[in-house]
Design a protein around this nucleic acid. Structure first.
Lengths: 234, 234
DNA sequence: TCAAAAGTGTTGGCGCTACACCCATGT
DNA sequence: ACATGGGTGTAGCGCCAACACTTTTGA
């Protein structure tokens, strides 16, 4: 115990910077979050976001990508700064400021084994266990941000696999907004954006008739993002 | 010189966290930024934003408010996190991560003497001198954010004095958006928000006829903010 | 009396919402 | 043949953009 107190004393002499990642995924019509059961002290066995200290010789953004890669095996993930959390007592062990990032990944592309190795699990949002420290707050803030962003950018697209159907996309938006959307209006709207390319394939996994698969036209998608387009789907 | 190198070596052993404030003001139809001529080494005489290291026993937000108070004498300022800058070589002297904040203040309320004391000056945006480190980037990002925020929240209001005219408000938005707005449409829109209270006074400083002064109805203004109202003035 | 800014209404078009039925196909 | 989800069109409404003239009053 005296060792622990000593540790505390030492570490509070120094400022640490960490990044924590709020990793969203979308699967089977559910928005999910990747969270971790801690394998090490302190707080072993508790749930948390995944994070890491930022190394002295490492760019902040690089640290974020490193954490994501270590957790999911993915390299080119959509990632964005959320907010920096800096209450002096947010972590009882260290004086640590945390830059929270949120990431959107395609669940079907992540590396399952790597995920398992880190004691990670996908949880549906309404079944999340309590998280350590201020991680619950981070998740709430990230969700809010996700909703905001989904309004003004076609951001939800990052969460779908390469080929997807319009009902898939709609279901994603319904999950984010937490309400039903009209299928006719939704279709009209997304098609009017000119970022979808209809493929000659159908996905028959959810209906007998099957739904046409689409993919993004990268070019147009990029242009849309750049133009700061206002993407409200009501 | 060897002392300098020695310093560098020492400080790069440690992580520092700073906050830098992008302080916007609005005066005489111009959007201005409060910037500082450094009185101390390193980079003495160069222009920069104002900032400070975050103390070990100080909340991040408290540090931000402290910096603002020290620079302007104001306590209850609109302040918001912008972004955290963390490139490993962003500051050649320290390994320092900076949480940038942006603030909107009413120029008429700030403490002029305090401002002078810190070697601060209000610069119009298009006449800014170059700033040290990545402060130019921060300013650009803040401007972008200001524009974004002005679209969805009646944020520009923070920049005006307590009593103001509708043409004042319009001119503020024109400055932020960098384009002219139609006075009839503008007036219609802002009045429709129900946050303005017409006073029985006129401001005759800009015309013979004079323009009615307004103030905010705090109650309704707060409600509007809470409701996440979408405030686009085109 | 004139210059300079404040203040005021209307119309057309576009985009959003609401709404109900047929289609394709596997079982 | 029927159940299941996929796909389609239209009409009304509200909101935004465009647009020009009158009012006030100090100089």
């Amino acid at each position: 115990m005296s060792k622990r107190i000593n540790d505390l004393y030492q570490v509070k002499e120094k400022m640490y910077v960490a990044t924590d990642c709020i990793i969203f995924g979308f699967d089977k019509g559910k928005l999910k979050l990747l969270i971790f059961k801690r394998k090490l002290e302190p707080l072993k066995g508790e749930y948390s976001l995944i994070g890491s200290f930022v190394r002295l010789d490492e760019d902040l953004e690089v640290a974020g990508r490193r954490v994501l890669r270590e957790a999911t095996g993915l390299e080119n993930v959509f990632m964005q700064q959320l907010k920096t959390y800096g209450k002096k007592d947010r972590d009882p062990g260290y004086r640590c400021i945390s830059v929270a990032l949120y990431a959107l990944i395609r669940i079907d592309e992540h590396d399952e084994e790597l995920v398992e190795e880190h004691g990670a699990h996908w949880y549906e949002l309404d079944q999340l266990p309590g998280l350590i420290l201020d991680h619950d707050v981070m998740v709430n803030d990230a969700l809010f941000q996700l909703k905001q962003n989904a309004r003004y950018k076609p951001i939800g697209f990052e969460l779908l696999p390469e080929k997807f159907t319009i009902p898939n996309l709609q279901s994603l938006y319904e999950t984010i907004y937490q309400r039903d959307l009209d299928p006719r209006n939704f279709r009209k709207k997304v098609l009017s954006l000119n970022v979808l390319e209809k493929l000659d394939e159908k996905d028959k996994s959810t209906s007998k008739r099957g739904a046409y698969l689409y993919k993004f036209n990268e070019e147009n998608y990029r242009k849309l993002l750049e133009s700061g387009y206002h993407f409200e789907i009501a």
